[in-house]
Design a protein around this nucleic acid. Structure first.
Lengths: 365, 365
DNA sequence: GTAAATTGCGTAACCGGTTACGCATCCGCA
DNA sequence: TGCGGATGCGTAACCGGTTACGCAATTTAC
């Protein structure tokens, strides 16, 4: 029962003009023949009353909601925000709306959202899967997939392989960056691991790239240079920021002092530079720093940050394309592919001063 | 015509159990009496089939969509992202979903989104009104308001006073920060204006606060110290970043060289510090820098940025509260308040090193 | 023992837009 | 004059959940 009084319906217009609502529909949608006079009469009335067809009703009768769910740990993270943005643009171009679901790194909330999304009958879901306790089975997600809702993961893999994924080439890019550092003469390169496996798989992939590059160069990986610097959430919320600072300080004060630090996220790298400065050391003279993501601010830090350019726009766009392709396929045929490929988007190295470069430079990997 | 095959409805369940769909409804919603046996039979079947009621159908029949539209210029801006987050949390707590509309600073897109939002029959809209050409009448917004959709503005005022607004106390906070700079002995304080009036009213308000503080201290405002440093969009997208850098460089190289720079947004302040460094000057020794917003990164810049803490969480939360209050009122009575108050949320000064402080300090305004 | 109230459940209509079907009416053409 | 087809429009049912109404069966009350 509509509480709003001022909502004009197709039936109101029909009644006022003594025609059937079907005729009004035809006049508005121009799909079937209506006499020019009747059409004009109806369009005038539509104009006069400011009638807008209800998408709620259209959705119900068409069985299509033209809506996607976008589930992310937090839009406060600039990388996730960029992904959301890219996805949103792609959806808008296809006439789809985005329901934003910010899970706040919270597993229960994620599950609640996935349930809500299912009840809202969204056509597809774009997911950055990341929440405490992710290792266990994602019941709601499995439900969704079984219910025929298309799901594509971005940025971060799903431990269970239930949905196709689009992500940056974390291993390749981290390897290239580590190679770059080795090429600059660094032999003691630290890695600031944030996020325990298997929660944050992309961090693990970047770690893998780091490891591979060391191996290639016959440099044994030194466990004392791999710092478990706290959970990823702590980067975004300051609460545990102290823990991170303490770990980095331990690293820099220890006997195995690195000449370079590779932080697998710019937010971490920037915080690391802040710690370095607070210890009276200088970047890059005493310690070189490299990041990952190339968030907007990284070009303006002191010194500007050498980093990996995370192709957020490309990842988001590609994920949306994959999702729409999947929707189109299931609309036309019984497209039951069941394959869940992982697509990798290449990254670039952005060489700036934090590793000693004089001029900024962009290198494809 | 539903294309999905696997969608269980309340009628399917009813048919399978030889009861009416009304009975199924009653068993699920527990609002009217059903015999224990029938209830159990139905609940078992619901469980077995994994039935989830369609919110699309519920929305149509109830006339309430439990959905809000959130319209922002871009989630790439950390301040807007923080507002979206706060709003999203508040909405989630009330069982509402958020449709995210990123207008990309684009007027036409904003209008398209507002139209889409109206057709989707959202119950309310939270808007950060800001798009090129905003000075002209916002036709779609007026439509919405007339159609009875509740609108609350955040962060930024609407030139036409059509909706209540929640915003930080820009004037008061900018005044307090300018006072602080004056108190430190600065006499030539520059203001980096970004965004021509009347597009970016909050920038203008901050400018007003700056002006008031100067006036109080009997310091005449020097037009050469007020730099029109490009549009706000240029801060977020790098395209015109050069223009900003050039203007700041002109300022610092000019004969009226300031001893302090007040940038009415942290992203601007951070870029300004980057320019200062590139000119071989130092912050705060040669030029002090103050920002506005206290984005997450500002605590980790070199040097850490003195800034105004923008109460994004409070603003977003309050805006959502106002919107819900308005929805509740129109549901119960004919609540036709027609008043569009502007609510101001107080800010704090966050004193860090970029203005010469030794210890970080937070001061209420 | 009968009236009244309660319980359990079905029917039908509604929310607003969409669509299959069918029936007049009108036109062209032979 | 008659036939085929196009034109213009209305009827009714449907999408899936909700709800007013009412009826029969059972329980309670006096």
């Amino acid at each position: 029962m509509a509480t709003n009084s001022t909502e004009t319906t197709i039936h109101d217009i029909a009644r006022r003009l003594n025609v059937s609502s079907t005729t009004v529909w035809r006049a508005i949608n121009g799909r079937q023949r209506v006499s020019p006079q009747t059409r004009q009469l109806i369009l005038d009335e539509v104009e006069r009353t400011g009638y807008r067809p209800s998408l709620v009703a259209q959705n119900l009768s068409s069985g299509r909601t033209q809506t996607l769910g976008v589930v992310v740990p937090t839009v406060a993270n600039p990388v996730y925000a960029a992904l959301v943005r890219a996805v949103e643009q792609a959806a808008f171009d296809r006439g789809y709306s985005i329901i934003l679901c910010d899970t706040d790194f919270n597993r229960a909330r994620e599950q609640q959202y996935l349930d809500l999304i299912e009840r809202r009958r969204v056509e597809g879901v774009l997911l950055i899967p990341f929440a405490k306790g992710m290792a266990s089975k994602n019941t709601q997600l499995s439900r969704l997939v079984r219910a025929g809702v298309k799901v594509v993961c971005m940025q971060q893999r799903l431990p269970t392989n239930e949905a196709p994924q689009v992500a940056p080439d974390n291993v390749g890019a981290a390897r290239a960056m580590t190679r770059h550092l080795i090429g600059l003469g660094h032999r003691r390169i630290a890695f600031l691991h944030a996020g325990m496996p298997p929660w944050h798989l992309s961090m693990c992939e970047r770690h893998e790239g780091y490891r591979l590059a060391l191996e290639e160069a016959d440099l044994p990986e030194n466990p004392r240079l791999v710092v478990e610097a706290g959970s990823f959430e702590s980067m975004v919320y300051d609460d545990e920021g102290e823990f991170f600072a303490d770990r980095v300080e331990d690293l820099l004060r220890g006997r195995m002092r690195p000449t370079a630090v590779f932080a697998p996220a710019d937010v971490l790298a920037i915080k690391a530079m802040s710690v370095i400065r607070s210890l009276g050391m200088r970047t890059p003279d005493d310690v070189a720093v490299a990041g990952f993501d190339d968030i907007h601010m990284s070009a303006y830090t002191t010194p500007p940050l050498t980093t990996v350019r995370h192709p957020t726009a490309a990842v988001g766009k590609r994920a949306a394309e994959l999702l729409f392709a999947s929707l189109d396929a299931s609309a036309s045929s019984t497209g039951n592919s069941e394959s869940c490929p992982i697509e990798r988007v290449p990254c670039e190295l952005v060489i700036r001063c934090s590793c000693g470069a004089r001029r900024a430079q962009v290198i494809p990997t």
